[in-house]
Design a protein around this nucleic acid. Structure first.
Lengths: 194, 194
DNA sequence: CCGTAACGATAACATATGTTATCAAGTTTA
DNA sequence: TAAACTTGATAACATATGTTATCGTTACGG
């Protein structure tokens, strides 16, 4: 359970900026784990450069839930808010520049934000957006074939296809890497008829 | 995008109770449509007796998103909050007793609730719960086979399997009705070995 | 610079799932 | 009560997808 913050609600940026100095800057290679499945989330994670994914282990092979790129922030809401073990891990996909804001500062920031007059409205909108996102994700599994989901990804979020290794995308789409390769070659053949 | 209210946060019930008199009581047969896909949600819907489902039409056959039973309330958050056409329909599955609270009263209710000191906390918790629910739904599609999903349903929400016709459950699980029948018979055979 | 790992394509085979059709039992409705 | 509809099971066949293995290419660390 993740969500983004920064720049989605620009009027909150000044609050955010106040805490820049408390962030820890990390420069890390690919495949660096930022949060371990089973551990309690202790930081809000902001991606300045590179990209990360949220995933969980399922009998050996891992399943990707979501991707995050430049200027996106995330945390395991469930773990962070309720102080319970995270059900997924977070790791970098590319060499990345990451900022971590520790729990105590996030709490403090939240308290300050509550003062903002229309913070309730913003929170509602923020969660409504996130909720719509996750509902669309799962409706897509009910409605679409893997091929259609891959196509949607190509059309709606091509940067994911361009930057992320194929087996992560496959696990995100809910198919095997082999099958995703088949889907791609089938689509490529389709495009030859014109 | 739906969510439940009543009794999940008992401290809010008094607020809710104040609006009981403005609700419209409906006694309807099965297959009564309460909100049409494409229309803007004008009511908060509360199920007193019976059950309903949210679904959308996909090239002729319909796909079920969620089920609601006694004492659960729902509305299309996206449609209701942002005044846009709903992406799904809502219809009764059994003969039901339904209460509708029109938009204007919900708005009024919300305004009153904002006064409640820890309403922000409650809203956060409420949405966090809903978000967890939808994430679990879609993670289940990435992680589990249809057979496992059916099993989860049996274990975690057996009332759904008991009360809801099988083809609705099939469309909710993302499989054909025929295949759900196969899954059931396979599970039944499995249970004979003991 | 070499060895190793990561990535992606493909083949061959096994299994899962969709589609269509048919049948039986129960329910609803005229 | 008869006809029509709903629900669910099953068979037969077609298609989709998973699994395992192999291969070539590229990227990367010693």
């Amino acid at each position: 359970m993740l969500f983004h913050f920064r720049d989605k609600f620009p009027q909150l940026n000044p609050y955010w900026d106040k805490y820049l100095e408390f962030q820890q800057r990390l420069e890390v290679p690919a495949k660096t784990i930022l949060l371990y499945e089973g551990k309690i989330s202790q930081n809000y994670i902001f991606v300045e450069k590179g990209c990360v994914r949220a995933f969980f282990n399922n009998n050996g092979d891992d399943k990707t839930i979501q991707f995050f790129f430049e200027n996106e922030g995330l945390f395991s809401v469930d773990s962070f808010v309720n102080n319970i073990p995270s059900v997924f891990s977070i790791e970098t996909i590319e060499p990345s520049v990451i900022y971590l804001l520790p729990r105590e500062y996030v709490t403090q920031l939240m308290a300050e934000l509550s003062a903002e007059p229309d913070f309730l409205q913003i929170v509602l909108k923020m969660f409504t957006q996130r909720q719509t996102h996750y509902i669309n994700e799962f409706v897509s599994f009910i409605r679409d074939t893997p091929e259609q989901r891959y196509n949607n990804l190509l059309v709606e979020r091509p940067h994911i296809v361009l930057r992320v290794p194929q087996h992560y995308i496959a696990s995100y789409l809910g198919v095997s890497a082999v099958h995703l390769s088949r889907i791609k070659s089938k689509l490529a053949k389709g495009k030859l008829h014109f």
